[in-house]
Amino acid sequence: MTAPLLFVLAVDQRPWLTKALWGHTGTATPDQRAAATRAKHAVLDGLLAAVDGGVPRGAAGILVDDELGPGVAERARATGVTLSMPLERAGLDVYEDAPADVPAHLAHHAPDLAKVLVRYNPEGDPDANALQRRRLAATARAVRDAGSRFLFELLVPPTPRQQGAGFADDVRPGLALRAMEEIAAEVPVDVWKLESLGPDQAYADAVALAATHDATCLLLGAGAPAAQVDAWLARAAPHGFAGFAVGRSIWWDAVRALLAGETDHGAAVSAIASRYRRFVDAFLDASRTAAPLAGAGGATR
């Protein structure tokens, strides 16, 4: 069965955003918080403009925090787009919940998808990996008990021995598939948000592996240039990915210009809507023009 399409505009960045805009990762000042909130509402406006321009509302989604984006989740919920919110303490190598009271947070916001970002290399520290799986299993239970789905953003950083120019295309795909297997054995995942996987076969393998536990896959953008994201979408779409969760590649230029006073709200919203629609169209075009690989489905390599 084909998974429903989902195109998520991700704007849940917190330390990354304050670092990019103001050079720090500490607590934002009141003025900085106001600016970040203004920016995140502009991103939602861009998403809604794209929906008004033809992107199916049922396939549109936003991933947003309530720390620097207060009110965005409530507005998104009212418009009927899919709402996702983060649960991780940002910037850590070993996963921790944030906020500490996950059930209360979920009860208040009722997101359709509750998202965790996890750095996990199956050849990394085994004790840290086991600790993460235990913590994430408890978080996933809380998410499902709240009636939300569990969105797992998997990042696979290289170990010192794995670092090198060929890691992303030659080494990381196999590690990502192994990580998915290890995690899914203990943690109930509904949607995987994955980095680019190099060879076409790896995308098909990820989808097949996810299907073994009734999960789907989305592609993340990693802040890459638009042409690079287009190329990744062209690989992911024909092999069963359900869509994408892309953020900075869509909105960063517009947000920076808006907060620098180089453009106005309307122009920023238009630019965000245009870039979002570009990626939606690229995904849909690729899904129509290519067929899945024959014999896909191997779990690891």
Score class of each variant (00 low, 15 high):
residue 7 F to L: 05
residue 142 A to I: 04
residue 100 A to T: 13
residue 213 H to D: 12
residue 288 R to I: 11
residue 271 A to W: 09
residue 39 A to E: 03
residue 100 A to Q: 12
residue 68 L to K: 03
residue 129 N to R: 11
residue 246 V to E: 02
residue 92 L to Q: 10
residue 10 A to M: 07
residue 98 A to L: 10
residue 241 F to S: 08
residue 20 A to K: 15
residue 209 L to N: 11
residue 250 I to V: 13
residue 284 L to N: 13
residue 301 R to I: 09
residue 195 E to T: 00
residue 114 A to I: 07
residue 282 A to N: 04
residue 257 A to G: 15
residue 47 L to A: 00
residue 207 V to Y: 10
residue 261 G to C: 13
residue 276 Y to F: 14
residue 92 L to C: 06
residue 191 V to G: 09
residue 8 V to Q: 02
residue 210 A to Y: 03
residue 212 T to K: 13
residue 94 V to D: 10
residue 163 Q to M: 12
residue 206 A to I: 08
residue 60 A to S: 01
residue 1 M to R: 11
residue 39 A to Q: 06
residue 55 V to Y: 00
residue 48 L to H: 03
residue 48 L to F: 02
residue 57 R to H: 00
residue 287 S to P: 07
residue 113 L to K: 09
residue 19 K to N: 14
residue 23 G to I: 07
residue 220 L to R: 14
residue 112 D to K: 12
residue 268 A to Q: 09
residue 219 L to H: 07
residue 186 E to M: 13
residue 199 P to W: 12
residue 160 P to D: 01
residue 277 R to Y: 10
residue 127 D to Q: 14
residue 14 R to I: 11
residue 190 D to K: 09
residue 62 I to V: 07
residue 249 S to I: 06
residue 25 T to C: 07
residue 194 L to Y: 04
residue 105 H to N: 04
residue 288 R to Q: 14
residue 116 V to T: 04
residue 43 V to Y: 05
residue 297 G to M: 01
residue 274 S to T: 15
residue 283 F to I: 00
residue 90 A to I: 05
residue 219 L to D: 08
residue 264 D to Y: 14
residue 215 A to V: 08
residue 13 Q to T: 06
residue 142 A to P: 01
residue 80 G to N: 01
residue 54 G to R: 00
residue 296 A to Y: 02
residue 51 V to S: 00
residue 133 R to I: 06
residue 239 H to K: 12
residue 156 V to A: 10
residue 268 A to R: 03
residue 133 R to G: 12
residue 8 V to M: 11
residue 68 L to F: 08
residue 116 V to S: 00
residue 210 A to L: 06
residue 162 Q to K: 00
residue 191 V to N: 09
residue 229 V to Q: 02
residue 4 P to A: 06
residue 177 L to K: 02
residue 234 A to Y: 11
residue 34 A to T: 11
residue 260 A to M: 08
residue 249 S to G: 03
residue 99 P to L: 04
residue 154 L to I: 02
residue 165 A to N: 10
residue 261 G to A: 14
residue 183 I to Q: 06
residue 54 G to H: 01
residue 190 D to H: 05
residue 113 L to D: 06
residue 61 G to Q: 01
residue 236 A to Y: 01
residue 137 A to T: 13
residue 54 G to Y: 00
residue 46 G to M: 01
residue 177 L to I: 03
residue 81 V to F: 05
residue 136 L to D: 02
residue 183 I to W: 11
residue 84 S to K: 00
residue 189 V to T: 09
residue 190 D to Y: 09
residue 238 P to G: 07
residue 295 G to H: 09
residue 58 G to K: 06
